[in-house]
Structure formats: structure tokens, C-alpha cells
């Protein structure tokens, strides 16, 4: 009797979380998988099992490939930049310089703004000829440039906006990690005559690795998850130059109302994210030194 109660209690405690997870995460994921195998019901026409038809048309869908490529570029560009920048900012505001609390506030400010507001601010920055960026560049004799209207710079412009928005948030984690670092390490290194770069490379950076892993996971997830600024700044244009995968899914599901094909696209995103999670938790995690 005592034994069976012992087994029941944890399950009861787990129940609320399990129910929520199943109802809002696992069940929808499975249903997405199932729906991606059916043709869309429309009006009086019922849903019909079509097997892998949506996946086959995906292979022939140039917009899908463009969005996949853009998503890869976007992730590869924003993640290391956001990590590097936030680490740099954290080290700056952790040092004993004048006005550092003001600096901390400045660096953190973009984080508290909603993405939609950020994108609208940047929409003005990017405006050709009289926007902030062109006005600044014209001081150095650069010609005006249609940043969001040129396929060569549209995606890059989105990435800069995202990095600006995110770096301040990640900085907080690095700052917390830096402040927990034992100051005797720095003193010992100074006694041994280690330079600042050497100290960073051999002591600070490795000790920040758990934070870096955490930040990296978040940055990667965000790079696939955030599309507010795409909607405000470029709507995926020009000619799909800045369409990233989730934005394309959103278009297919809530503009074209082809939720069946959108389910198939979602499965691709799911597989990519699951793969990334596996690499991060399964492989990288083992190589990181935790205290």
C-alpha cells in the first residue's frame, strides 16, 4: 500500500504539466504530422489522404528552397554575431569604467521594446536617402541605398535589426556569469603574468561556456521563431529575398489558407529544430565544463 502511494504521488504532481504539454505541444505536433498527409478540405470537399504529395510538391517549390536557404543564412549570421556582441558588451559593462550603469541600460534598452516597435524604428533607419543610415553614410560620401528594396541587402538588414534587438538580452546572462566568476582567478593570473587576451582565452571564455550554450540555444530558436520584423520591414520581399521558413509557413497557413501544405512545411521546421536540439544537448553539452 505504502509502495503504491509512493508511485502515485509523483505522477499526480506531474499531471498538470503533462496535461498542458500534451494538449498544447505534443498533440498539435502529432496532428500537424497527420494533417500534412491529407488534402485540404474546402467547402463541401472533404479531406482526402494523399500520403507524401505535399512533400513532393515541396521539393518542386522554389519559394520553399529560397526560404530554407534564407533561414540558414539568417541563423548562421545572427547567432554568432549576437553571441559575440553580447559577450563583448557584458565584458565592457562588467569592467570598472565610468557610467557603466548608464551603459548597461543603453545596451539593455532594445530588449524591452516589442519587436514590432523595433522594426518600425528600423524601417525609418533604412529609408533610402533621408533615413538615419543613409544620412549618416552620406557624411562619408556614400551614395544612397535602398536597403530593404534591394535583394542583396534585404536579408542582411533584417539580420542587423535582429542582432540589435537580441544582443542586449543575452548580455544580461553573460553579465551574471561574469559577476559570479571568482575574482581570485584574475588575481592569480595577474600574478602569473598572464595578459588580458590570454586570460580571456584560457579562463574567462571556457568558464562562460555553459552560458554560451544556453545563449546559443536561445539565439538559434529565436532565429527560427521570430518573424515580426519580417512582416513589418520587407514582407519577405523583394521577390522572396528575405522570406525565411517560418514566414513562409505563416503565409501559406494564414494568407493562402492551405493549412495542409503549411503542416508539411511545419514538419520540416520541426525536424530541423529537433536536429539542432540533438546536436546541442547530445554532443556539445558533453564537451562543456560545468563547475
Amino acid at each position: 500500500m505504502a509502495r503504491s502511494r509512493f508511485q502515485l504521488a509523483p505522477w499526480i504532481l506531474l499531471l498538470p504539466a503533462t496535461v498542458l504539454l500534451v494538449a498544447f505541444t505534443h498533440y498539435p505536433a502529432v496532428m500537424t504530422m497527420v494533417k500534412s498527409l491529407y488534402r485540404l478540405p474546402k467547402g463541401s470537399r472533404p479531406a482526402k489522404f494523399v500520403g507524401t504529395e505535399h512533400y513532393v510538391s515541396m521539393i518542386n517549390d522554389p519559394v520553399f528552397w529560397a526560404s530554407l536557404k534564407n533561414s540558414m543564412i539568417y541563423a548562421l549570421g545572427t547567432v554568432p554575431m549576437a553571441i559575440g556582441l553580447s559577450m563583448l558588451m557584458a565584458i565592457i559593462v562588467n569592467s570598472a569604467i565610468k557610467g557603466r550603469s548608464l551603459m548597461r541600460m543603453f545596451f539593455f534598452l532594445p530588449t524591452i521594446l516589442p519587436m514590432i516597435a523595433v522594426a518600425n524604428i528600423w524601417l525609418f533607419f533604412y529609408t533610402p536617402s533621408y533615413g538615419l543610415i543613409d544620412q549618416f553614410l552620406s557624411l562619408f560620401g556614400f551614395e544612397q541605398h535602398n536597403w530593404l528594396g534591394d535583394p542583396d541587402t534585404a536579408l542582411g538588414s533584417l539580420m542587423v535589426t535582429a542582432i540589435w534587438k537580441e544582443a542586449g538580452f543575452f548580455m544580461i546572462f553573460y553579465l551574471a556569469a561574469l559577476q559570479q566568476m571568482n575574482p581570485t582567478l584574475a588575481e592569480a593570473a595577474a600574478l602569473e603574468g598572464a595578459g588580458r587576451w590570454y586570460f580571456f582565452r584560457r579562463v574567462t571564455f571556457p568558464l562562460l561556456m555553459p552560458t554560451t550554450l544556453f545563449v546559443m540555444i536561445n539565439a538559434i530558436i529565436n532565429s527560427f521563431r521570430l518573424i515580426d520584423h519580417v512582416i513589418v520591414l520587407t514582407r519577405g520581399g523583394p521577390d522572396n529575398a528575405s522570406t525565411i521558413l517560418l514566414y513562409y509557413i505563416y503565409m501559406v497557413a494564414f494568407r493562402y489558407w492551405d493549412t495542409a501544405y503549411a503542416s508539411a512545411l511545419t514538419m520540416v521546421l520541426l525536424v530541423i529544430l529537433a536536429g539542432l536540439a540533438f546536436i546541442q544537448f547530445g554532443i556539445l553539452d558533453r564537451k562543456i565544463h560545468y563547475k
Binding site: 519559394v63 528594396g149 534591394d150 523583394p238 521577390d239 522572396n240 494568407r255 493562402y256
Partner: peptide
Amino acid sequence: HDSQRVQRAIDDAIQAVLVGSK
């Protein structure tokens, strides 16, 4: 019919021509 999707096809074409890629 399916106007948003057809629209997207023509919109993409227009933008491709205006930026000079096609």
C-alpha cells in the same frame, strides 16, 4: 480563386523585374 496565392506569384514577378533579377 485562391487570390492570395495567385497574387503572391504576380507580386514576386513584379519585384524580380523591378530589382533587375529577371
